[in-house]
């Protein structure tokens, strides 16, 4: 914690970074939330521990770019993946960000409870490298943690074993709950379009009504726009006030990317994006 604050203070003092996007403690609680430190005093409030669930990379495309200095960001390895994904997609340049990597030992699912095998965020289950790579500096140490049941994977396997009609009925019940608040979009580090297709009205492809049909269109298209891009941080599911298991769709797309192309988005900033590129030898067997 002190090491993190020290690095943040130095980065602000030397004007390397104009601000640091990090986590601060919610007063009177162990919970944390995103916090933007703009001076050394504020940098003293930065923390990092297992209660830091948020993927802060989302702010890189939301916050006003500084005129001078870089955008500083505290990033655990999954956040780094999102940052690399943004670099791959040319949304930011490497010299625009100052990345303070933090070694992570897993974060909680429910911030009201301490970290345990049962209370481990879904994304940490799937985490392949708790140590962030390619950052400007790294603090803290990563302790191994016990993985929990892969609930999303299990549910997805269950879903796959159903008939198409049953799957449709499952999603009909889930999407009926959607209130079209677009929290899934806003919380997503890779949903950065200046004008989302859902907000386009000429023509209106996705109905703005929160009808089941409009909700189907919205959630399918969002999942598709993240195909081969989702880095699996789970922020959409966490932000959803209707508890729709959005990660099922994102995970499925991730599995296809792995199976068909052996590709994981956000792994290497020099890789071309998956759906932005092609290969002559791509699978052709489903096309008549």
């Amino acid at each position: 914690m002190e090491a993190l604050q020290k690095i943040a203070k130095e980065a602000l003092a030397s004007k390397e970074a104009a601000f640091i996007i990090g986590y601060a403690r919610v007063p009177g609680s162990q919970k944390t939330r995103p916090f933007i430190a703009r001076d050394e005093a504020e940098a003293g409030q930065l923390v990092f521990d297992e209660y830091c669930q948020n993927n802060l990379a989302v702010y890189l495309t939301r916050i006003a770019r500084p005129k001078e200095g870089k955008m500083g960001i505290v990033a655990k390895s999954c956040d780094v993946r999102a940052i690399v994904a943004l670099l791959q997609e040319n949304q930011i340049k490497r010299n625009e960000v100052y990345i303070i990597g933090v070694n992570c030992s897993g974060v909680v699912e429910d911030p009201a409870q301490p970290l345990s095998k049962e209370n481990l965020a879904g994304k940490c289950n799937m985490c392949q490298a708790p140590q962030p790579a390619g950052t400007d500096t790294v603090v803290g140490e990563a302790k191994p943690y016990e993985r929990a049941d892969d609930k999303v994977g299990k549910l997805l396997a269950q879903l796959d074993s159903l008939s198409p009609q049953e799957r449709f009925a499952f999603w009909e019940a889930e999407f009926e709950k959607c209130v079209k608040c677009y929290a899934c979009r806003q919380a997503c580090p890779l949903c950065y379009c200046e004008q989302c297709i859902a907000d386009k009205s000429q023509p209106r492809w996705i109905e703005s009504s929160a009808s089941v049909r409009g909700n189907f269109a919205w959630n399918m298209i969002r999942a598709f726009h993240l195909a081969g891009r989702c880095i699996g941080c789970g922020e959409c599911s966490r932000a959803c006030p209707a508890d729709i298991p959005l990660m099922l769709l994102n995970r499925k797309m991730g599995m296809i990317a792995m199976k068909e192309f052996n590709y994981r988005h956000g792994s290497n900033m020099d890789d071309p994006t998956l759906v932005g590129s092609y290969n002559n030898s791509d699978r052709n067997d489903f096309i008549m």
Binding site: L159, P164, L249, M253, R283, I287
Partner: peptide, 17 residues
Amino acid sequence: RRRWIFFRELLNTVGIP
């Protein structure tokens, strides 16, 4: 083609076989 590889799986997952 690359898009379809994803999209048909996505449709299948939501019950459009």
